[in-house]
Nucleic acid binder design. Structure first.
Ligand SMILES: [Zn+2]
Ligand SMILES: [Zn+2]
Ligand SMILES: [Zn+2]
Ligand SMILES: [Zn+2]
Lengths: 129, 129
DNA sequence: CAGCAACTGACAACCGTTGTCAAAACCAGG
DNA sequence: CCTGGTTTTGACAACGGTTGTCAGTTGCTG
């Protein structure tokens, strides 16, 4: 089984930052924020931790239109989706039981198995409008 | 205004291939398929046409988990989503009026404007299972 | 206080994609 | 048909986000 990860200054710094920040941020943005705070962490290391957290399900990942991955620590550990501001990245966790039902139903109708889905809603938030 | 694009061998080859192929394919896959058919087209040119078709709304684009863009000529010009096979790329166009209503409603509730959404369903199709 | 395994980070490599630009192909107008 | 200009093409280089490398550092355990 996987060995427990060590608690290093860098790991803590990345995890803490993700807890403090509101909205989805790219690895490079997080790297830059850390550098400004003085708690400098190598870019490679930021990538590693951010991915480890994603694998552990502690942060959510989604992709910008250009393919860049952005990360966010969400309040809910349960399956949910996001309403994301295009301008500032701020986001709201949303749930839609009806959508969940619909996706698995339509997939079954077409004989698909191992079904997953991605659903994100993008817009401009009130502050950015 | 934009000048009408010329009908060249390459443009026709890419458009035809997209019409014949069932499922989402990357620019590189399309390039390779064309090369095998003998109708060789430069990779750069494939990228250009595939993007032009996407801009014109004639093909749908979505992104694989790793960020690679894949393209497909869909039967319906109207807004729709996809049920995509992870293994072979084959896909079915799906519509969910309820989902459309739900997304705009929840976005409005949170004061978001200019709302768009992405929704794709991934699974393993019957043939690939 | 070892001593070893895990972690770090500067750097290079990777890969999909986009920019460049000279050569080739289209398409009027003559 | 030619011919001139405009568009298109494609080999190649550059780009940007991400991942691999590996020697040096750091936590942790015994
Ligand atoms: Zn905003
Ligand atoms: Zn869901
Ligand atoms: Zn399949
Ligand atoms: Zn929709």
């Amino acid at each position: 089984m996987s060995p427990a990860p060590r608690t290093t200054r860098q790991r803590t710094a990345v995890a803490d930052l993700l807890s403090r920040v509101d909205g989805f941020r790219s690895a490079q943005e997080l790297h830059e924020l850390l550098r400004r705070e003085g708690a400098s962490v190598g870019l490679t290391t930021v990538y590693r931790h951010v991915q480890a957290l994603a694998d552990a399900g502690e942060v959510d990942v989604l992709r910008h239109e250009d393919g860049e991955a952005v990360y966010r620590r969400c309040a809910s550990p349960a399956h949910h989706h996001h309403l994301v501001c295009r301008a500032c990245g701020r986001s709201v966790e949303i749930e839609g039981p009806a959508v969940e039902r619909w996706t698995s139903q339509v997939a079954a109708e077409h004989g698909f198995t191992d079904v997953q889905h991605t659903l994100e809603v993008f817009g401009t938030c009130a502050d950015c409008a």
